[in-house]
Amino acid sequence: MSARDNILRRLRAAPQGQTPLPPDVGAFHAALAAAAPVGTRASRIELFCEKMTFWHGEVVRVTRNNWPQKLRELCAARGIRSLLYGAQGEHARALEAAGIDGLKPYDRPVDEWKKELFEDTDAGLTSTRGGIAETGTLIIWPDAAEPRLLSLVPPIHFALLDGDRLYDTLFQAISEQQWSDGMPTNALLVSGPSKTADIQVTLAYGAHGPKELIVLLLVNEEEQA
Rank of each mutant, 00 (worst) to 15 (best):
P20Y: 05
P20G: 04
N66K: 07
L84W: 05
P105W: 04
E112F: 07
H29Y: 11
P23I: 14
P68G: 02
R81W: 05
L95M: 09
K70N: 07
F28C: 11
W113E: 05
E112G: 02
L84T: 00
N65L: 15
I100C: 12
P105L: 05
A42M: 10
L47T: 03
G99P: 09
L32A: 15
G26V: 08
G39A: 08
L47H: 10
T19P: 01
K114P: 02
V38G: 00
I80K: 00
L71N: 00
V25Y: 13
E96Y: 03
P23D: 09
P22D: 15
I45M: 10
V62E: 01
L95V: 14
R61P: 03
P37I: 00
H29E: 06
D101H: 15
A92Y: 04
W55C: 09
A36F: 00
G39E: 03
R44M: 01
R93H: 07
I45C: 06
I80W: 01
R44K: 09
A30V: 10
A36N: 05
G86T: 05
F28T: 11
A76K: 06
R93E: 13
A87N: 14
S43P: 02
K51S: 05
T63W: 08
K115W: 09
F54P: 04
P23V: 09
R41V: 02
T19D: 13
H29L: 08
E50C: 08
R64Y: 11
